[in-house]
Every structure is written in structure tokens, then in C-alpha cells.
Amino acid sequence: MTKKKKVVIDTGDAGKGTSEIAENANTQEMEERALSVFASERNEDITALVLCLITTFIVLLFTKWVV
């Protein structure tokens, strides 16, 4: 007799490894598994880039363009 059950590290069901991470993947899943607050990797990277550009713009504004 074989007993086999799948153990689940309980984090919800979206964005599992086998499927692509959907645009609106379960945020909790991402938080628990990937230690990130973003719904997908692409969102995280793009947000990082946008925030960097905003920082750059503000810095440019106050150190080069306005002064």
C-alpha cells in the first residue's frame, strides 16, 4: 500500500511554479514565497526603475535645473 499526499506550504494557489505568474496573482502568495510585495517580478523591476527615474528627476530638478 502506498500512501502519498502532497504537502503544501500554504500560501494560496495563484502563481505556482508550474504556471506563469498572472498579472493579478495572489499578493499573499508573492509575499510568503518570494518575500516581495509585488504581484510579479516584472512589476517589481519596472516599479524600481520608475522610482529610480523619479528620484533622478527630482535630484536633477534641485541640483541642476532649478539652481
Binding site: 510585495v37 524600481a48 528620484t55
Partner: peptide, 20 residues
């Protein structure tokens, strides 16, 4: 807890900024 998870995101921002 939620905020600490921003660490890797902020580190990525650091690497992006380093490009300059």
C-alpha cells in the same frame, strides 16, 4: 513584516542608480 520585504526591491533600485 510587510515593509521588510521591500528590501530586495530597494537594493535593486540601488543597483539601477549605480548605473549612473
Amino acid at each position: 513584516a510587510a515593509g521588510v520585504k521591500c528590501a530586495r526591491f530597494v537594493l535593486k533600485m540601488g543597483v539601477i542608480m549605480l548605473g549612473a
